[in-house]
Simulated scan of single mutants.
Amino acid sequence: MDKYKNKYKIGSHRLRNWDYSSNALYFLTIVTQNRECILGDIVTGQIKLSEMGKIVENEFLKSFEIRNELFLNEYIIMPNHLHMIVEICHPGNGSNSLIDTVKSHGNNEPHGYDVEPHGRAVLPNRTVLQPNGVVQQLQSIKPNRPVRLPKSISSFIAGFKSAVNTKIDDFIDEHHLSIPKYNKQNHFFQPNYHDHIIRNDFEYQRIADYIIRNPTMWENDKLNHKK
């Protein structure tokens, strides 16, 4: 496990140089800061959202209304995290040939779908791997500087988290709550998140089933710090 600023951090399983604005299906997980269970409670195998959880759900669904390239397949809001399968589909891009691309360029993705938050979906260098296997050069990007591509997974998550911070802060003010407000120093969600590119129908069904059944497995969930 690598160290950053004298703290241990989990290494990224992100597919090296993959263009995260490409047409594909992505399994994503976002976790609250410190895994705090502030989004709701599990009651008889179902999620009962808190007021903050309702705000999160509203802003989450709104994300798909304002982004034409993004489609929601499955999702669940849990007490301290969200699971989702989202699809990026830019008109005219055609088929991804994703399975062949992953096989021919190596696979840095986890084989299972255990949930651990990893690094941001940003590109550490100046090239991106397109779904057809073509490596695109990003001439305007300075070396070693993280890149957030427009209409990408990282762009979507950054916008969603920012909107949640704003709405939650409004809620705190409106109800005169004696809790810290959220900003760049005090995140509502963890800065990092987990992503996994879905390669085939079997994997899609397996992950979709995992998402649907997640509330019933809460007692043994590795993100449940109360277990």
Rank of each mutant, 00 (worst) to 15 (best):
Ser63Phe: 02
Leu49Glu: 12
Gly11Ser: 01
Val43Thr: 11
Asn125Ala: 07
Tyr113His: 15
Ile10Leu: 12
Leu28Met: 14
Asn108Cys: 11
Asn80Phe: 06
Met84Asn: 05
Val128Ser: 07
Ile76Asn: 08
Tyr113Phe: 09
Glu69Gln: 12
Asn80Glu: 06
Leu61Gln: 11
Trp18Asp: 04
Gly106Tyr: 02
Val122Cys: 13
Gln130Lys: 15
Ile88Thr: 02
Gln139Val: 11
Gly11Arg: 05
Leu49Cys: 07
Val86Phe: 03
Ile99Glu: 10
Leu39Glu: 13
Gly40Ala: 02
Leu61Ser: 06
Gln137Asp: 04
Ser97Phe: 07
Val43Cys: 07
Ser63Pro: 08
Gly133Asp: 13
Asn80Ser: 08
Leu82His: 08
His13Val: 03
Leu39Val: 13
Pro91Gln: 10
Lys54Gln: 14
Ile99Met: 10
Arg67Thr: 06
Asp100Glu: 12
Lys103Arg: 13
Ser140Ala: 12
Ser63Arg: 00
Ile47Arg: 01
Asn58Asp: 15
Leu49Thr: 10
Asp19Gln: 09
Ile99Asp: 10
Gly92Arg: 00
Leu72Lys: 03
Val31Phe: 08
Gly112Ala: 11
Met52Phe: 13
Phe71His: 14
Asn108Glu: 11
Glu69Trp: 15
Lys103Cys: 05
Gln46His: 10
Thr101Phe: 03
Lys62His: 13
Ile55Lys: 12
Leu72Cys: 05
His83Gln: 08
Arg35Asn: 14
Lys103Thr: 01
Cys37Ala: 15
Asp19Pro: 05
Phe71Asp: 08
Ile55Trp: 03
Asn108Ala: 08
His90Asp: 00
Asn34Ser: 15
Glu87Asp: 04
Asn108Leu: 06
Arg67Lys: 14
Asp114Lys: 05
Pro79Ile: 06
Gly133Phe: 11
Ile141Cys: 12
Ile55Cys: 11
Tyr26Gly: 01
Glu87Pro: 04
Thr101Gly: 04
Asn108His: 11
Leu72Glu: 03
Asn73Cys: 08
Glu69Phe: 14
Asn107Trp: 01
Ile55Leu: 15
Glu36Thr: 15
Asn96Gly: 14
Glu57Met: 13
Ile10Pro: 01
Leu138Met: 15
Met52His: 09
Glu109Ser: 10
Arg16Ile: 11
His105Lys: 14
Arg16Lys: 15
Phe27Thr: 01
Gly133Val: 06
Glu36Ala: 15
Asn93Thr: 00
Val128Met: 06
Gly119Ile: 03
Pro124Asn: 13
Val115Arg: 10
Asn107Phe: 02
Asp114Cys: 02
Glu116Phe: 08
Gly112Val: 09
Pro117His: 08
Ser97Val: 00
Glu65Gly: 03
Ile38Arg: 14
His90Asn: 09
